[in-house]
Design a protein around this nucleic acid. Sequence first.
DNA 1: ATGGCCTTGGTACAAGGA
Length: 255
Amino acid sequence: MKLATWNVNSLGVRLPQLLDWLAAQQPDVVVLQETKLTDDKFPQAEIEAAGWRSQWFGQKTYNGVALLSRTEASDVVRNIPGFEDPQARVIAATVDGVRVVGAYFPNGQAPGSDKFAYKMAWLDALRLWLRAELARHPRLVLMGDYNVAPEDRDVFDPVALAGTIHCTDEERAHFQGLLGLGLMDAFRLFEQAPRSWSWWDYRNLAFRKNQGLRIDHILVSQALQPAVTACQVDKLPRKNERPSDHAPVWVELTG
DNA sequence: ATGGCCTTGGTACAAGGA
């Protein structure tokens, strides 16, 4: 079973690239972030014609998430239950016995800002909800755009970017809090090339210079960890014409 | 050359992203 996450930075713009990638990679489950589409604009017909079912949850201009699957998804949840949020950031469902949580974590803009405070509150709510979700569904995967670089080795210039957004101690403590629920960073279960990133700024020739951050993650529950056989960032779509600034990340599970 | 952005809404350029 192959599960993937990709921040497409506008599904309206990136749909052809998504369909190409689905055809090439044949994932069983994909979560998307930053679809930037209201629900009436979601391209369900095109995705279904390619062979994937869809669940989606969007809004105008900003945010928006979706969950695509080969088989039908059940028990779909949109956003964090009990956390009032005008922003469409979470979609969760059960697919083939795995609880899949797809999330677009808030950016946070800058430490000390209102948006940073929202990010912290959102992260608190996410962790509380996931604790209960894990009790109900031991086989769980949390994947998406976390907007957190967990360690210095996930940052192209950790000295220059120390304490800046994605790299603050508060954000990293929240990431550790998720690990504290019994989740594992699937990417770090395997030997990886140094300077592996999932996002490169559109500016400054960042992709060509490989100056990026690893902020898109796949965390797997303890019950699933023995089943994980591979986890990789697929840099190829970042080389497309008009790419998303994020690359997809995927994980392979046996069974 | 030692730096160079992209998307949306809306039709100029501000806001947001990371």
